[in-house]
């Protein structure tokens, strides 16, 4: 295995491999990228997309963690899992193909539950991305990451729907700004556009603060109309997972659809959100993990992680939702 060099110099091999992206985001961003150590929890369809995008981009190291054994569904959503690996651990089964993507990245895998991840373990990473997980698990992990100053991401794909959340704590980044510059003497002014790098700062809030919204408050009451219904799908699925300790199951589709609608009705009432805000049709399209949706959400999420570690470009603060009905990808800013 040929790993990235230790020092700050990008080798000529790396320059050749990463040529196109260096042309896009620059050498500095590439250097920061290859100094980053990423933990991806959840080797599901979405996790596989995030892993692919980060290993290709050239992070220093990436660890895959999942406690589950491979199911048939995994082999059709996590494309790193070979088709003959049922009953193996899904993270370990993914390892070889992930490493093949880019021999310069130090890729490891481990069979662990989210609850087993201790502070010491976390502190070796600069980025944590959890794919799946309950609301409570996400919140706890997010809070721990805050203590260590670790960039935190959480996302999931439900059928044709998907979302992710990010918490970069206090994040500084540079951004290209185009400015008109006037050159030449006063009588022959020529104006040309010049790109300048501007330093910016952005503060984030943790998942626990962002996800629980008081829709009866004046601030959010008026925002409700413009809020994507996808948020309420996420609320319903979190509640489902809290009550049943599992995701909706395609093989129990009929009963789960009924249960989801029951949850939706009581939840929206509890939140004082009109039932019409979320059409009941959503239950038809939230089973499994549909691959093209993993690609879309994992693509945007992967790019957010690249932006965050490279300290370049404005991050999305703080939710992204993908809706399959019209193909819109909406960025919401909740909890502020």
């Amino acid at each position: 295995m040929v790993l990235h060099g230790n020092n700050s110099t990008i080798s000529e091999d790396e320059a050749a491999l990463y040529d196109r992206q260096i042309r896009l985001w620059g050498l500095d961003a590439q250097k920061r990228l290859r100094a980053s150590n990423v933990l991806v929890i959840g080797a599901c369809g979405l996790g596989a997309e995030v892993i692919k995008n980060l290993v290709l981009a050239g992070v220093n190291s990436l660890k895959i963690v999942d406690h589950r054994s491979v199911t048939e569904a995994d082999s059709y959503s996590n494309f790193f899992v070979p088709h003959d690996s049922e009953e193996k651990n899904v993270a370990l089964a993914s390892l070889e193909r992930v490493q093949n993507l880019n021999p310069m990245v130090n890729v490891t895998a481990e069979a662990l539950e989210i609850s087993q991840i201790c502070d010491n373990y976390l502190s070796q990473f600069s980025v944590v991305c959890v794919c799946g997980g309950s609301k409570e698990e996400i919140s706890n992990l997010n809070n721990k990451c805050r203590e260590f100053g670790i960039l935190f991401f959480a996302g999931e794909v439900y059928g044709m729907h998907g979302y992710f959340f990010e918490d970069l704590i206090d994040h500084s980044y540079v951004e290209e700004v185009k400015a008109k510059v006037e050159t030449g003497k006063s009588d022959e002014k020529e104006s040309s556009e010049e790109t300048k790098m501007v330093k910016r700062q952005e503060s984030f809030i943790p998942f626990s603060t962002a996800i629980d919204i008081d829709w009866t408050s004046q601030k959010y009451g008026t925002r409700l109309k413009r809020t994507t219904p996808s948020l309420f799908i996420l609320n319903v699925l979190h509640e489902f997972s809290f009550l049943h300790k599992r995701r909706p199951d395609p093989s129990r589709r009929e009963e789960d659809e009924i249960e989801l609608l029951t949850i939706k009705n009581s939840l929206l009432d509890k939140l004082s959100v009109p039932q019409g805000k979320l059409s009941n049709d959503f239950v038809k399209s939230i089973f499994g993990q549909v691959s093209p949706i993993c690609a879309v959400v994992g693509g945007v999420l992967g790019q957010e992680i690249i932006k965050a570690v490279s300290g370049k470009d404005a991050p999305l603060n703080n939710f992204f939702f993908f809706s399959p009905d019209d193909g819109a990808g909406v960025v919401e800013n909740f909890g502020y």
Partner: peptide, 28 residues
């Protein structure tokens, strides 16, 4: 490096954008 971009008409491409686009193609 810069001459190559200009002379070779290189439009930089990255994995994430392509992944998103390809996902949207199948959705359509």
């Amino acid at each position: 490096f810069d001459v190559k971009s200009m002379a070779g008409n290189i439009i930089p491409a990255i994995a994430t954008t392509n992944a998103i686009v390809a996902g949207l193609i199948v959705l359509q």
